[in-house]
Design a protein around this nucleic acid. Structure first.
Lengths: 193, 193
DNA sequence: GGAAAGGCTGAGAAAATCTCAGTCTGTCTG
DNA sequence: CAGACAGACTGAGATTTTCTCAGCCTTTCC
């Protein structure tokens, strides 16, 4: 009983691209460049021996095969996500401690984060900090930073916010195990409005 | 709607290790060394923040969390496998052309492959060849070789056979898109007896 | 015509993963 | 009890995969 299926990274790229019908948008979602998506999808198509997309000047279209494939891949991904959320953080219900760099806090909407009632159940406290070490020490659960740390063992989720001065992209940094939990999702959604 | 879950390679290692309750056996199945499995599983556990296995002197045991996780991961993998088989090769029902290196054919059981009725529906012809190029030219669908080619864009499946002289490990080489199809499975099963 | 958008590609950089060789612990054997 | 063995772990370095970057191409829209 051996499972055999294509590169799982390729499937991830396909799934996102098919959902958006855009390599560029998929790239944004997955935090890579469009070229990377293009290459992943192409490799996937080569390994399956079929075309999943039709590239038209007006945009992408799923082929018949791609359209058949997508919902089943999505279902599998749902299962992986739910299974992971179910076992992973023994922190269901725990409130998170969050750090924000001082430079960033001046640029965030005033309403955030102290006065957002919606986040009360998820946030224990918010401190000024940009110390990534604090995450490893368990002093902080997450950091909001204006730059990526690109630290391989941390999860970084980009968030595009409307700020005082035009749009601001910030990064929500956590241990990987916290990247998907209810608390994190609630915070990110609230941030993005 | 963004899916977030741990490294898919790590999940693959976990799934195989949990099924065998052995890192070594999982390594054999996935065609890597036990050290690689050990590292993958460890990374997965770190990213989830929980232990999936208990390492006892007598062997591996799943933790409660690991045991909860496994069936759901397996189900997701089933779905990926089935979806892939459903869309992938437009060769359902096609018979395969197979090449066998001359050195190898002398060492295979006499019964194979020409006289195996079970394989009739799956094999069109068998030729003497060890030319990997022929796979890319579509002149051959698969090769049976005594060594790995380690060609990145080909799928190689090791097969342990009872041969004239003790055990013989050979490699079934195909395009990745053919690695999982019914024909291939039938041939491999027949080979392994 | 000119600019903008989106996808593609090749080269090289970066990251993830694997192998290798050696270690350790516990079990089995005589 | 010594010795052999089995299986898991580890760090260093090699290998492979994946990503970025910069530039190109085609189509659409002013």
């Amino acid at each position: 009983m051996t499972y055999r299926f294509p590169s799982l990274n390729g499937l991830k790229a396909f799934e996102a691209a098919a959902r958006h019908l855009s390599f560029k948008a998929a790239a944004g979602e997955l935090g890579v460049t469009p070229g990377a998506i293009s290459q992943q999808v192409k490799r996937l198509e080569a390994s399956l021996g079929i075309a999943l997309f039709r590239r038209l000047p007006q945009g992408l279209l799923l082929t018949r095969e791609g359209a058949d494939y997508l919902p089943r891949i999505s279902r599998a991904f749902d299962e992986l996500t739910e299974a992971t959320e179910a076992v992973a953080p023994a922190l269901n219900g725990r409130k998170l401690s969050i750090g924000i760099s001082d430079r960033l806090i001046e640029r965030l909407p005033k309403s955030w984060p102290r006065h957002s009632a919606a986040l009360d159940p998820y946030i224990r406290d918010v401190r000024i900090s940009d110390d990534v070490e604090a995450i490893w020490n368990n002093e902080l659960d997450a950091l909001l930073l204006e730059r990526e740390t690109r630290h391989a063992s941390l999860a970084e989720q980009p968030v595009a916010l409307p700020a005082r001065d035009a749009t601001l992209t910030i990064y929500f940094v956590t241990r990987p195990g916290l990247a998907t939990c209810r608390q994190t999702r609630a915070i990110l959604e609230e941030l993005q409005g």
